[in-house]
Amino acid sequence: MLQIIHLKNDLRQILRDPIMAILMVVPLLLIIAFKLMVLYLVPFIQALIEFDILPYLYYVFVFVVIMCASMLGIVTGFMMIDDRDGKISELMSVTPLGRNGYLINRLLFSSVLSVFYSILGYYVLNVVELPFVTILFVSLLSSNYSIIIGLLIFTFADDKVKGLAFAKAINSLTLFAFTDLLALKWLTVLSWFFPPYWITLVVQTPHTLLVYGLALLVNFGWLFLLIRHYRKK
């Protein structure tokens, strides 16, 4: 009950602050921008070069899923840094909600939105055909990735500036989703340890259960390590 009341307050706070409200709908703009790109830019490029890019269009979906999750994660991370600077998180830790409740509350918001935008992105972009279970699984991975990003920024950045530096570095993680295209063995092996790679692999091989298992292992491994770090702090 407490969680719900707090979530309601969070939602009210976000809707009251136009900046936050805008940030929450930015992924929607991203999806629209990429849909327009698929509709108009892809045929244009296709006409320019002889190389057939259509079989690679699913990377657009993967990119949008990862970008939406990282955007929402970064927003949440900065929101929590601002809360920490304003001593709000400290205040929350002595309320019945507690330190963990506060964390769940904040991260739940970005994770739910990530699920929503991943599913929306799939249907709007319409660049790959996947079983419904896979769509749900990809949205779960996306939601987990947004939590990972939020936690990475919040737990490792002591202040806003470090947060910005982290956000910049975290964006580089997106590369791991596209290492197959680069065909560098060492980079692919390195990618195994990063969540974005598994989003691509699940989309590429939606019928291989082992990939699902490994994706869960890597994603929840990161989550477990980050939560442990947060608790120790």
Partner: peptide, 25 residues
């Protein structure tokens, strides 16, 4: 010194490496 302490240079080493990998293709 502030930027060094906050990891700007480190981040840009990482970013540069990533760009170099992509550009090499």
């Amino acid at each position: 010194r502030f930027q060094w302490k906050h990891g700007f240079y480190l981040v840009y080493v990482l970013v540069t490496i990533i760009y170099l990998i992509i550009l090499s293709f």
